[in-house]
Nucleic acid binder design. Structure first.
Lengths: 354, 354
DNA sequence: CTGAAAGCGCTTACAG
DNA sequence: CTGAAAGCGCTTACAG
């Protein structure tokens, strides 16, 4: 006999109230409704037309028993687990966190569950995540940016649907959602330019991220459009984390070049930069205007609140999940990310208005 | 025939290189090793002593085939899915995020996967999360604080192991991990007292959270120990988010009572408070010293960096997972959270040293 | 110590 | 439109 404990609890000790009633199964529903298990399954999955009376009987039985199909059994039998693997880079990332939330919300509406794993910006780890996820038989894969090669992603897409963010990539079974980082970089720089700034320093992002380079291109394009000569001395490298923003500002200041504004390729570096400026006795925005990129939740409550380019994390997640659901349903996704928006707050102001 | 697609791909089209080799199963391992599937299963699960030679043959076959047991099948057959449900409050919480990371890391070492769901500080939603998690047959449940009643948690613990944080609760099959919020509140206040402050305002946390009340008790105890009279006018309510910290400071300032220091019951409110002070032209720490609670990742890079009580989120997650693993193994967990530590940074300084 | 057999709770060709 | 049967890939009493 299987499951001896459960059986014993309800059979041998029918009086014991501790154990809840045994979980209703599809078989019990079938019996109660007077149909075969196949029919119940078909109704559940909308997999065939079933006569109205049988359907009614089954619906009633389901309601009566409070039956919920077992995803594990469904997964084994049908190959569909109603779960989708999500490889993010760090489960506690301030940016991707809200994207996860968007995924969670959207998937839940369709009865799917996300399985999150962190790749830590490391192609090897990401590949391992995918292995684990696939061994758990996820129905699809959402990859948030990451370091996997495009061919690697394409290869996965042959086995199961994948949606990836932060890339422009086309392949059968794969949908890519890309944010316009170039335009974002242009917008941030243009904002500063419009405020009268001419000497605008730039803290670049991790060059390993394609989006970092795009943002930098946007910076240059905006300068060019305004007829402001590009000065390479005003550009310092960063790695997208706070510490690198702090260091970058120090390097910048040590060069003793004048600048009245600073554009950091992401908010985290902007926060680090703000601290660096603060430590050197420079005030934001009185002495230098500061603009970031991403619009993290904490940007609004920074002192002063940070002007930034809004990258809609929640929406990215939601649309990624929605696209996955469409892929799973055999439809072609069409979602596109919203255009970048500049959010002007108190960290930037017109030049010379201190 | 089942799985027609897979079979067709490898059988009818042996030349097509696209489809990878069919996934090795336990049965294939058994055949290759010349033993029964039962034996392979026993070796895999350490569920019985097996002769050395058979074990060697099986190990070799496993290696040769690159066999990885299918968690879905294991879940259905054996009742163990090697996954643990984690109900957190919000997948993108700045505090719980790092706890999730701790859980993820610790669980991964044992071959377990977390299944995260967000309860949004709502008992009904949390209960639904648990339902979904149980329908997915998680082997155990980790509940990060939340709003579920103690009896509800105890009831769950009858069905599967649960570990819960932020409570002191004892029940069979349940392990609670509690942080000393009282001591933390005392420490923060004492720090300010030691710096010479006497008029110390307090922004309370959401009174629905027991830990908020503990922190407040710590505040009062420290004042009392220092012989500083408690002034209820210096205490304002908050709800643990930035906005409420901002509002609280405004209320405080509107009362026109002097205070030289401010203790916020969490970092998020401290950030809001810092902004409120900034907007009123008050400088931190020159005009008012500020101390938070939690030590969020962003505290270090606030301007100025925030003094705070460190609540070890990562460690909380790691220990919760470790305790769960012990419960699952039939051992009694013994982990305890580290004692609160005050992290003095630049937002607090001796009174009158502006 | 080990194998044969039944079973976990579903799904899905197959055959009406 | 519907049922009987086989199967998904494992685990676990049961019986040596």
């Amino acid at each position: 006999m299987k499951n001896p404990k459960r059986a014993r609890a309800s059979a041998a000790n029918p009086a014991r109230p501790a154990r809840p009633a045994p979980k209703p199964t599809l078989g019990m529903v079938a019996e109660l409704a007077g149909v075969s298990p196949s029919t119940v399954s078909r109704i559940l999955n909308g997999t065939a037309v079933v006569s109205a009376d049988k359907r009614a009987a089954v619906d009633a039985a389901i309601a009566r028993l409070g039956f919920v199909p077992d995803p594990v059994a469904r997964g084994l039998a049908g190959g569909r687990t109603h779960s989708v693997g999500v490889v993010t880079q760090s489960i506690d990332s301030p940016f991707y966190g809200v994207a996860l939330r968007g995924i969670e919300d959207e998937l839940a509406r369709a009865g799917y569950s996300p399985l999150f794993m962190s790749g830590h910006w490391n192609a090897v780890e990401e590949a391992r995540c995918i292995e684990v996820l696939r061994s758990r038989r996820v129905d699809g894969l959402i990859v948030l940016t990451g370091r996997l090669s495009d061919p690697a992603l394409r290869a996965q897409a042959k086995a199961l649907p994948v949606v990836v963010t932060g890339r422009t990539l086309k392949a059968p079974g794969l949908y890519a959602l890309q944010f316009d980082n170039f335009e974002g970089g242009r917008l941030a720089t243009h904002h500063l330019l419009a405020l009268g700034h001419r000497r605008i320093a730039f803290i670049a992002g991790d060059p390993q991220h394609p989006d970092a380079n795009e943002r930098q291109r946007g910076y240059r394009a905006a300068l060019e459009a305004a007829g402001v000569p590009f000065d390479p001395e005003l550009v310092v490298p960063g790695q997208y984390h706070e510490q690198s923003g702090l260091l970058a500002v120090e390097r910048l200041l040590d060069r003793r070049l004048p600048f009245s504004a600073l554009f950091a390729a992401n908010d985290q570096m902007a926060f680090g930069a703000a601290l660096g400026l603060h430590r050197r006795g420079l005030r934001v925005p009185e002495d230098v205007s500061l603009v970031g990129f991403d619009d993290l939740a904490s940007a609004v409550y920074a002192s002063p609140p940070l002007s930034t380019v809004q990258q809609p994390g929640y929406e990215i997640g939601r649309l990624a999940a929605q696209s996955m659901l469409q892929l799973l349903a055999g439809d072609r996704p069409t979602a596109a990310l919203p255009a970048p928006r500049l959010i002007a707050r108190e960290s930037s102001r017109a030049r010379g208005t201190a």
